[in-house]
């Protein structure tokens, strides 16, 4: 048993060794340059939160219009969090690929259940209460 341990393959970790002090310093400098952006985005999110609250007391003509406006602002905020805080901007393709799929399926879940509520061909709409 123990013999086979010592003969186990070295993991394919090419980058492990050359991850030296130089790389680390370069990365640190790169991150230091981003600190301002994090604060700016954070402040932007706080401002947009205020705007969301404010807009919800403005009459856009109908409740559904208000919902649409509110959701647009929320989506902008969510994109800011995802893009900057979660580093999705510039993230690797592997992650983007399955996140796009996830987005498509989540939308499918939203819209198809939504469509199931009414049928324009027969003119029926299904209310649950």
């Amino acid at each position: 048993m123990s013999a086979s341990h010592s003969h186990s393959p070295a993991p394919q970790d090419a980058s492990h060794d050359n991850h030296g002090a130089h790389d680390q310093a370069a990365e640190a400098a790169h991150i230091a340059a981003h600190l301002g952006a994090y604060i700016k985005v954070g402040v932007g999110l706080l401002v947009l939160t205020g705007i969301t609250v404010g807009l919800s007391y403005v009459d856009f003509g109908s409740r559904s219009m208000n919902i649409i406006v509110g959701m647009i602002v929320a989506t902008i905020k969510a994109s800011m969090v995802a893009a900057i805080f979660m580093h999705l901007k510039g993230e690797k393709m592997t992650i983007w690929r399955f996140l796009i799929m996830t987005g498509i399926f989540a939308m499918g879940l939203f819209f198809l259940t939504f469509l199931a509520h009414s049928d324009p061909i027969t003119g029926t709409s299904y209310s649950t209460h």
């Binding site: 969301t52 609250v53 919902i67 509110g70 959701m71 602002v73 969090v81």
Partner: peptide, 14 residues
Amino acid sequence: DLVWIFVFPIFYLL
């Protein structure tokens, strides 16, 4: 946080 960004308007505001 991102989930809350949606939860807040749909329950509190809209």
